[in-house]
């Protein structure tokens, strides 16, 4: 179940969309890179760590800024077309 809990600005949306795309790109690159290609492999591992951190920071910062409704075991989701933020979870009270 999804519940609309807020909205970010288009600029903020662009930020997380870029990180989202990068994370996907890194994950798919990880499927073909092996440790044999040491230089690129090292760069990938480092980038995955950094991108993951930036990704989480964005959610933390935005949640703090907008004070979105949340719940235990719940996740927020963003709709890239509308910049809307949804709370998604199958168990928490927000869906009731």
């Amino acid at each position: 179940m999804k519940k609309l809990v807020g909205q970010v600005t288009p600029e903020e949306k662009n930020e997380i969309q870029t990180l989202f795309e990068r994370r996907n790109g890194l994950n798919e690159l990880a499927k073909i890179l092996t440790a044999d290609n040491a230089e690129l492999y090292e760069k990938l591992v480092k980038d995955m760590g950094e991108t993951g951190t930036k990704f989480q920071n964005w959610w933390n910062t935005m949640a703090k800024k907008y004070n979105w409704e949340g719940c235990e075991n719940g996740n927020w989701e963003i709709n890239f077309d509308t910049c809307e933020i949804y709370l998604v979870d199958g168990t928490c009270s927000c869906k009731k």
């Binding site: 870029t18 795309e21 990068r22 790109g25 890194l26 073909i32 690129l40 760069k43």
Partner: peptide
Amino acid sequence: IKSELFRRNHHWFNSY
């Protein structure tokens, strides 16, 4: 393409 975009730090790596 994936490896090269990444290796070159090409801006398209974030959008392809």
